[in-house]
Simulated assay, not measured.
Amino acid sequence: MDSISQEDVQRLVAALVSIETENPPGNERACAEYIVDWFADRRIDADLIEEPYEDRPQVAVRIGDGDPTLVLNGHIDVVPAGDRAQWTHDPYGAAVVDGSLFGRGSADMKTGVAIGMLATARLARAIESGELRGSIVFHAAIGEETAEPGTRTLLERGYDGDYGVVLEPTGLRTATSEKGLAWYEIRVTGAPSHASRPDQGRNAVLDARPVLDALAEYDADVREREDDLVGRAYSTVTMFEAGTKENVLPEAATITVDRRFLPDEEIDEIDAEIDALLAEVESNHGVETSWRRTRTYESAEIPADSSLADVFRRHSADVDDVPAEPWGIEASTDVRNFVNDAGIEAITWGPGDITQAHTYDEHVDLEAATSGLRALLGASREILSGDAETESSRE
């Protein structure tokens, strides 16, 4: 087994974190070009893919042409750092304190990208020498934070395989299912007038009250829906916007709802539930509403007893005290593109604590990241040697 250096992991994670890739607006180019150059320095051809957006390229690598093919996937966009004054450390300074590296994207998910790069480079030597009969594909995708088709485009362009690992921060737990996410924007329409003549108009804020009440009842209902691996469904009001001036009745109020749904729920059915809820409010209270779904991350799942998942559970347990029971992730990831769009058996697995994602002073434990690289290499070698009996190999 190759020696694994924590210094190598730290150096690469720091380099990636120090490149600002906030989305929005989508500043991934500099990081994508760095990754291409990094692979070139190791005599590995990496493709800069200027799709789906020419000005926001992503990276794909394919090594070998044997079976099976394993795809290692990560996204390089990060959410904005927000109020810099709230950070103890520069969000793009990659400071290391007490064994943890701080910075935006350190957990979500440039550490996953880094160990994917390091594993790909090491596996390339074994594939090219004939030690491993399979092939490896690596993705550095754009647009995951805003549900853009980065990963889906790479899969559609032929950077696919038999199995996939989305390297999001799971603390090295192996997720075979994940919740879906849909954002709804509900508009309540009123009629503006001067506040000195409130009866002349119709106050959209007041008309929003029965809508909010109905949404609260809906949330209580969907919380009764539960999945053994990913937990409860939720429907949470997260934003309310109304008004243009202190002395003007608002002509509209906008309510944003974050709907977390289970693998056995269909998005069309959820749309119908929102539609029926608003229709009942309109009928009972005479308010005027409209709605649109602004973003969707589909739920996804593979069998909990997937042998692909079993390989990763075993290798994770070998390097750290990681729970090995079946598990699902409550967040949404690009694993849906593998499972739902490409029909590829895939898991969500990677180093880092998911509770660090999108927080001030986001950080990753470097020792745990190094353990993650060790587990990733061990699991990948088992799969690419053809020794692992995965779901696809049993069909």
Rank of each mutant, 00 (worst) to 15 (best):
R374I: 10
K110Y: 00
S380K: 02
T69D: 02
S332T: 13
V335D: 00
T294D: 09
D258I: 07
L262F: 07
C31Y: 07
D221F: 00
I127E: 04
K245S: 13
T244V: 14
E7Q: 12
I63V: 15
S135G: 09
E168A: 00
A114H: 03
G190C: 05
Q86G: 14
Q10L: 07
D228E: 11
H363L: 10
L154M: 13
P303F: 08
V211P: 01
M1N: 09
D8V: 09
V237Q: 13
W183V: 10
T88W: 05
L101K: 01
D264P: 01
T153M: 05
G112S: 06
E7I: 07
P250Y: 03
R313W: 04
E325G: 08
S235F: 02
G352P: 07
R232S: 04
R62M: 06
L155W: 02
Y360M: 03
L132R: 02
P68H: 04
T146M: 13
A304W: 07
H315P: 01
I274V: 12
V205Q: 09
S196E: 13
A324S: 13
L229Y: 11
L167K: 08
E131A: 08
M117Y: 10
P169C: 14
N203W: 02
L16V: 15
V78P: 06
G201K: 00
E280I: 04
R104V: 07
I329R: 08
A40T: 11
E391L: 12
R314N: 06
A140N: 04
S371G: 12
W291G: 08
I76G: 05
T174I: 14
L366P: 00
R104K: 13
D83R: 03
Y163Q: 06
L118T: 09
E246D: 14
R223A: 05
S385F: 05
H363V: 11
L132S: 03
P303C: 04
V17H: 10
M239W: 02
E382Y: 14
G82P: 05
A119P: 01
S393N: 09
D341A: 11
K179E: 15
K245F: 09
G82C: 08
T111I: 13
F312Y: 12
P303Q: 07
G171H: 06
R133S: 14
W38R: 06
I267N: 05
G66P: 04
L384V: 09
